[in-house]
């Protein structure tokens, strides 16, 4: 009984992966660590919360699965950096990321649902431009640390459109043309 239950649980494991890249973004870590956001994630059926916290100093509360009792809480774990973030992304059902273009496009290429949280403390906040544009085009959801809980509550994952990967060929063609190289 126990083992089959464990297998079931393993099968139903739905991981939320939070990543701040190489930045320091305590406001995001604090936000996902809040009771409100945890509750919303649980309501959505997510079972695990894994946080890549980068250079931040805020330590989230770790918790392991409480197997007894009806009220199963979210399993929470965290780490600072990892050389293979792609593996965590692949195994996640939802990714909550900072607004860096690297993380954004890596997630979109993996066709994973994505919530981008914009760091409002950054001085030159051009990062929100990209997140907002891609949210307008329905490739991801855009939130702030304050609105994250609400976004999780109201998001409709089926409304997301897959992102068509870009192409560097137009640039290469223009460079060739400019330099007078024959087109192939």
């Amino acid at each position: 009984m126990m083992t089959s239950g464990a297998v079931d649980r393993e099968k139903e494991k739905k991981v939320v992966f939070v990543t701040v890249g190489t930045t320091c973004f305590d406001a995001l870590v604090k936000s996902v660590d809040s009771r409100h956001v945890r509750n919303e994630l649980k309501k959505r059926g997510y079972t695990n919360l894994l946080i890549q916290m980068g250079r931040g100093s805020y330590i989230p509360r770790k918790s392991t699965m409480q197997s007894c009792g009806e009220d199963e809480s979210l399993v929470v774990d965290y780490f600072t950096f990892s050389p293979s973030i792609a593996d965590y992304m692949r195994s996640a059902s939802l990714i909550i990321s900072h607004a860096g273009s690297g993380s954004i496009f890596e997630t979109l290429r993996l066709r994973k649902p994505l919530i981008v949280v914009v760091n409002e403390d950054l001085m030159d906040n051009h990062q929100s431009e990209l997140a907002e544009e891609l949210a307008d085009r329905k490739h991801l959801f855009c939130a702030s640390p304050q609105t994250l809980g609400q976004t999780i509550q109201t998001m409709d994952l089926d409304s997301l459109l897959p992102f068509q990967s870009g192409d560097a060929l137009p640039v290469a063609k223009l460079i060739n043309k400019f330099l007078g190289f024959p087109a192939e």
């Binding site: 860096g100 273009s101 690297g102 496009f105 560097a168 640039v171 460079i175 060739n176």
Partner: peptide
């Protein structure tokens, strides 16, 4: 660095390497 490097290498990837 970062996203800039990723974009740049995607261009290098499609440039004619013998040119």
């Amino acid at each position: 660095s970062g996203g800039h490097t990723a974009e740049m290498l995607s261009i290098v990837n499609v440039l004619e390497k013998d040119r």
